[in-house]
Amino acid sequence: MLKKLHDMGLRSDHCYMAGFASIALSFGCWLASKQFEKGAEIDRADRWGIFVGEWAPTFIALGNGLQSYEK
């Protein structure tokens, strides 16, 4: 699967950038949910942040795997 992604043009740098963007987006989702959904409980904001934040390790792991094809 990683070889196919690499052959399609996906590079480790792309995955690393997506991982860090996911961390920033996680914080943004948490903050937006907390600010704009005043009637909802804080748990809902936390769930949004955690949901998006779980993408970061996946992107970083893909980046690590793709890096072996770039050497």
Rank of each mutant, 00 (worst) to 15 (best):
S68M: 02
K3S: 10
I23C: 09
G9Y: 05
F51A: 14
G28I: 15
A56Q: 09
I23P: 00
C15K: 00
E70M: 08
F59Q: 04
E37R: 07
D13E: 11
W55N: 14
I60N: 04
L66H: 08
K71L: 03
F27K: 03
D13M: 12
S33N: 09
Y69L: 11
K34H: 15
Y16T: 05
L31E: 09
G65H: 03
G63Q: 04
I50E: 15
L62S: 11
S12L: 05
S26N: 12
C29Q: 07
E37H: 12
I50F: 14
I50W: 13
A21R: 04
D46M: 09
C15H: 00
Q35Y: 11
L2P: 04
E37N: 11
A24R: 01
H6F: 12
F20D: 01
V52R: 02
L5F: 05
D43Y: 03
L2V: 01
A21H: 05
W48C: 08
Q67D: 09
W30Y: 14
S26I: 01
D46K: 12
F36C: 06
Y16Q: 07
I60L: 12
S26T: 02
E54K: 15
D46S: 09
G19V: 10
W30N: 09
I50M: 15
F36S: 10
G19T: 10
G28A: 14
A32D: 07
E54Y: 13
D7M: 11
R44Y: 15
Y69C: 06
G9A: 09
G19P: 07
W48P: 00
G19E: 06
D43R: 01
D46V: 02
K34M: 13
M1A: 14
F59R: 00
K34N: 13
D13Q: 10
T58E: 05
I42N: 05
A21F: 10
A40Y: 08
I60Y: 04
T58Q: 12
L66N: 11
F20A: 09
G65S: 02
S33T: 10
L25H: 03
R47G: 03
A24M: 13
G19L: 06
R47P: 00
Q35H: 09
H14D: 05
G19K: 07
D13G: 12
H6P: 02
S22N: 12
S22G: 15
R47I: 08
M17R: 14
G9W: 03
L5I: 04
I60T: 07
G65V: 01
L25Q: 05
G49K: 00
F20N: 02
